[in-house]
Design a protein around this nucleic acid. Structure first.
Length: 277
DNA sequence: GCTCAGGTGGTTC
DNA sequence: GAACCACCTGAG
């Protein structure tokens, strides 16, 4: 068991920030389960602290990096313009969010599926893919879980099968991307070493990956903090609060963190303006 | 029925 | 290169 205080770390906020679809609250309130390429993790959340159910060694060698706990997010928050009350409030509201270091193939598929889709449905689609194509594993405590299927497995799936699973018009994108990754035409290891814009450009060679999806992959898998995915929520928030444009120069090296604060605040914050409903 | 949900790719001018 | 439009699906 490893205990972390909740000052700048919140599982609920990370779960709600839309970067990870395989972190879910169980039927027991406050207890979460996370399935990643690194393995399975059970998490207990309490008002003051969060408890990761793993050994100290596993924490040090794996989860500490995954949750980006070596980084001080307070430093990012302190970089926010004091006159920018909107961003100040957003960062205060979502101050426990961290940018995870997730598996790149999983992020490619996840964000291809995210287009014209809502969060609960994306979760279901991914769960379906894992159960159908992932090889089940068992935790020490006997809990069965399904890791994300690798590109080689999905490369052999038929488009028809994916359509049956309600992936819709995204089905050929998944098949095509899986084949390009499985064949090595797109080299995932090489992407990890590339600079942000180069990686973004390379990812956009995959079918179904445009600028927004490529930015999500860059941010949530490659930890490129200059990536700033602009979706409908962010577009709306930027139009209202930054009609002159978002100050990217000021937030070089952490724009993606700000994006997450804005996104989470727009989606979950009590704050609403203009569109009263 | 219609619109919308964290878009992309193809076509057109 | 900006402006359209089709595209699967399910919920409200």
């Amino acid at each position: 068991m490893v205990t972390i205080d909740n000052v700048h770390f919140s599982i609920q906020q990370i779960c709600g920030s839309g970067q990870c679809f395989r972190l879910e609250e169980t039927e027991e309130k406050g207890i979460y389960e996370l399935v990643t390429a690194r393995g399975y993790l059970k998490i207990l959340t309490e008002p003051e602290q969060t408890i990761l159910c793993c050994s100290q060694d596993e924490f040090e060698s794996c989860w500490k990096e995954y949750f980006d706990l070596n980084t001080c997010y307070k430093d990012y928050i302190e970089r926010i313009d004091r006159n920018d009350t909107y961003l100040q409030k957003a960062a205060e509201f979502g101050g426990g969010i961290r940018i995870l270091r997730q598996d790149i193939w999983e992020m490619i598929v996840t964000f291809i599926l995210s287009q014209q889709n809502n969060i609960p449905r994306i979760r279901n689609l991914i769960r379906g893919l894992c159960q159908r194509y992932g090889k089940p594993e068992i935790t020490e405590s006997g809990r069965e879980f399904y890791p994300f299927p690798d590109a080689q497995v999905l490369a052999e799936a038929e488009e028809r099968e994916l359509r049956e699973m309600k992936l819709g018009y995204r089905s050929p994108y998944i098949c095509g991307s899986a084949r390009m990754v499985a064949s090595g035409e797109i080299d995932l290891e090489a992407l990890k070493k590339m600079e942000y814009l180069r990686a973004r450009e390379e990812l956009m060679k995959l079918p179904g990956v445009g600028g927004k999806v490529a930015d999500c992959i860059c941010l949530f898998a490659l930890h490129q903090l200059d990536a700033f995915p602009v979706d409908t929520h962010i577009r709306k928030a930027l139009d209202i609060h930054y009609p002159e444009g978002f100050p990217f120069d000021r937030y070089r090296g952490c724009a993606g963190v700000m994006q997450q604060y804005i996104f989470y605040y727009d989606l979950r914050g009590e704050y609403r303006e203009g569109g009263a409903s």
